[in-house]
């Protein structure tokens, strides 16, 4: 693998309108409620620190929390990342359902896969946490 920067995207469709999904996904301080493997988080202004199940603290910089666009963006600023951008978009499918898209861009590339893989599991968990039996079909 010669790529130094990795880009990964996962999505889930939920049988809920976007404003209801955004209520949880757009709240930076509630990420541990739906992102499996994040045990806790603290938010201070635009700084967030999540602690993973392995006990690893990950400092983050919140870049965008846009309740109109339903977009949340953040950077992990831990030293192991040369660059990171996480983007969560909630899209209105205009049929009472939503599409949640979680994009992870990172250098080193390997970390994009690690964070992106966890984000995929988090999206799958989101349906359960929001009281749905599973993703919408």
């Amino acid at each position: 693998m010669t790529a130094t920067r990795g880009s990964v995207r996962h999505q889930v469709r939920l049988a809920l309108p976007p404003d209801e999904v955004w209520e949880l996904v757009g709240a930076p301080e509630r990420v541990h409620e739906w992102f499996s493997g994040i045990e806790s988080c603290t938010v201070d202004g635009d700084q967030r620190v999540v602690v993973t199940r392995s006990g690893l603290p990950m400092p983050e910089h919140l870049l965008t929390v846009d309740a109109t666009l339903w977009r949340l963006q953040y950077r992990i600023t831990a030293p192991m990342f040369r660059e990171h951008l996480g983007t969560i978009d909630v899209l209105d499918l205009e049929d009472g359902t939503s599409l949640v898209v979680y994009s992870t861009d990172a250098e080193p590339a390997a970390l994009a896969l690690v964070i992106g893989g966890a984000a995929r599991a988090a999206l799958a968990n989101l349906a359960t946490v929001m009281g749905l039996g599973g993703p919408a079909t």
Binding site: S54, M58, V114, A118
Partner: peptide
Amino acid sequence: EPFLDPFLRFPENA
């Protein structure tokens, strides 16, 4: 299950 797993998502690692 994958080794690189800071979230301890996989039973082997947890």
